[in-house]
Each structure stands twice: as structure tokens, then as C-alpha cells.
């Protein structure tokens, strides 16, 4: 299956290992990501005021690129736009929802983008890779596992953007299970914990890192309390806060017990038997290899 793919800014810069592990894992199960030939940053956060259309331009331009890919034959009759990053997923989805629900706004945006060759027809669907896996069936994914992540206790960290608001959430906002089902399909153990959808502090990491430290500490402590040996996330910003900021907390508090943070496709890649090189574990700030070596999952 070939599907148009929107990488977003961070998977192309500081989190290239996340993208690499995702693309290689997807290949193993017969999904080929076709990157949009031309794309622009989605804006990271959705514009929430009633009158601000300007910030919806960026998402809509990307939807146009999917239309073009179909015309050019890069994909066949595929109106879905795949994302890995939770924030891209959320921002693109919320803009798309507005365009679908408000014909006047869509018209205004199309009129403004007169340099584009065509109008956005409102028919693109933004999907997250996890939803594609769910649709394919986690049992099917389980069948393709060559290296079960036996005994590895994994806490699923959803963060905010996969679940909220409800209109675009990929699962139940209060009691999600999709990441746990994913973890089970890799034959790892799930962890029952409270902080799985608690905000990590998000972009406050730029100018108010103290808040992020407080939130990250709370999340890590909760994971630790419930026996987690690893945390997975699908958001590169959550990953940065949980991983890099956690390492800074550790630096200031040597007694702090750290937990390694994995991008969900890094663990998926291990379970699918990818080479270590395709996972980029060495770029994870909190040592990610130690626990995997202990569990004899990598050498």
C-alpha cells in the first residue's frame, strides 16, 4: 500500500531517527510512505479563533499536494494523508475539519491561494500511522513480529494531541487503548498508569522550562511507580520533553530514576527485526539500549 506522507519539520531535523524507524517498520508490513513532493510546516498548533483564517493556509496547502499526487499518479486514488507526529496530526485534522464544515471559509482560503493550480475540494482525510495499524489489525501486526518484546514493561504515553479534542481524537479521550493494543501486538507488557494523557508542557519548553520539568517529573514518577521500564510516544515534542528534559532533571538530581523514552516505531522496528542502524537509538538522550540489552532484544 502506498500512502501520501507528511513528515513535518521535526522528523526531518532533530528526530530523523524517529522517521527512519517508522519508514523501515512500515516497509516490513507492506506500507510505503510516499512523502509529499513539496510540503510546508503545518504550524504545529491549531489556530483556534473564529476569525483567523491565515493560519489555516499551511494545512490546506498540504492537502492540495495530496490532490496533486493523485493526479500525477504518485499514489492511486488515495485521499488519505498519513502523519507520524501527533501535533501535525492534530493541527492538520483541526484545519481540515473546519474546511469541511465551513464552505465559506474554504471558499475564502481557495480564493486567497489563487497562485495554486487547483482548489482544495475538502475530500482529504488526515490519518495517524497508529490508526492505519489499527485498521489493518493489531493481530495482523502481531503475526509479523519476529522478535517479541517479551517481559518489557511499556507505558503508553498519548500526550494530548492524539486524543483531544474529541472531534479529531484517534481514540476515546478519557480511556484510550490504541497504544496499549499496539504494545500488546509487539508482545510487550502494558502498564496501567495515570499520566498517559497528561500534558508534558508542550512548547513551554522554549521559554518556561521549569513548568516542563515539573510535569515531566510527575509523568516519570508515575510511570516508575507503576513498574514501567520504557515509555513510548508518537509525538516528537513529547519525546523531546520526556527525554531531553528528563536527562537535565537527572543532571541536577543524581538520585532521580530515569526511564528511557522510545518513539513508538523504534520499538516496533525492534519487534519486526530491523537492524539497529534503522532505529537510531543512540540519538535518544536517556540511554535506550541498556534496557533492551538486558532483555536480550538487541546486542
Amino acid at each position: 500500500m502506498k500512502i501520501p506522507y507528511f513528515p513535518g519539520c521535526t522528523l526531518k531535523t532533530t528526530a530523523q531517527n524517529f522517521e527512519m524507524s517508522a519508514i523501515e517498520s512500515a516497509k516490513k508490513i507492506g506500507i510505503e510512505f510516499i512523502e509529499l513532493p513539496r510540503w510546508n510546516c503545518c504550524g504545529v498548533v491549531a489556530s483556534l479563533t473564529s476569525d483567523d483564517l491565515m493560519r489555516h493556509l499551511a494545512p490546506v496547502r498540504n492537502f492540495l499536494r495530496v490532490q496533486e499526487m493523485n493526479k500525477q499518479g504518485l499514489v492511486e486514488n488515495e485521499n488519505r494523508l498519513l502523519t507520524l507526529c501527533s501535533m501535525c496530526y492534530n493541527t492538520l485534522s483541526l484545519s481540515n475539519l473546519r474546511m469541511k464544515n465551513d464552505a465559506d471559509d474554504l471558499q475564502k482560503i481557495n480564493d486567497f491561494m489563487h497562485k495554486e493550480e487547483e482548489n482544495y475540494d475538502g475530500n482529504i482525510e488526515v490519518v495517524h500511522f497508529l490508526s492505519i495499524l489499527e485498521e489493518m489489525g493489531f493481530d495482523k501486526l502481531a503475526q509479523k513480529i519476529t522478535k517479541p518484546l517479551k517481559d518489557l514493561k511499556v507505558a503508553s504515553y498519548y500526550g494530548c494531541m492524539l486524543l483531544r479534542p474529541k472531534e479529531v481524537g484517534i481514540d476515546d479521550a478519557e480511556a484510550p487503548t490504541i497504544l496499549e493494543n499496539f504494545v500488546k501486538s509487539l508482545k510487550a507488557e502494558t502498564v496501567d498508569w495515570d499520566a498517559g494523557s497528561r500534558c508534558c508542557g508542550s512548547y513551554h519548553t522554549v521559554n518556561n522550562v521549569e513548568i516542563v520539568y515539573t510535569l515531566v517529573k510527575g509523568i516519570i514518577l508515575d510511570a516508575r511507580k507503576n513498574g514501567a521500564e520504557a515509555i513510548i510516544t508518537s509525538c516528537p515534542l513529547c519525546a523531546f520533553n520526556l527525554d531531553v528534559r528528563q536527562s537535565e532533571i537527572k543532571k541536577d538530581n543524581p538520585d532521580f530514576q530515569t526511564i528511557p523514552i522510545f518513539y513508538f516505531t523504534q520499538l516496533m522496528g525492534i519487534a519486526l527485526g530491523l537492524n539497529k542502524e534503522a532505529l537510531g537509538l543512540e540519538f535518544n538522550k536517556i540511554d535506550a539500549e541498556d534496557i533492551l540489552k538486558k532483555k536480550k532484544l538487541i546486542k
Binding site: P7, C9, K12, T13, R38, W39, N40, C41, G43, M54, R55, L57, A58, R61, F112, M113, K115
Partner: peptide, 26 residues
Amino acid sequence: VSCNSCTKACPQDIEVMDYIQAIIRG
């Protein structure tokens, strides 16, 4: 914000927005 005003203004017909976006993604 990907409004493309820069590209529209460019007398050299450069896709200005596209190079700004290329910078953003490194």
C-alpha cells in the same frame, strides 16, 4: 504561516515561501 505573499511579491519569480519552508525543515 505559508501565506505565499513573499513568492507573489518576488520580481525574480523565486518560490520564496518554498525556500523559507526548506530552511524550517533544515
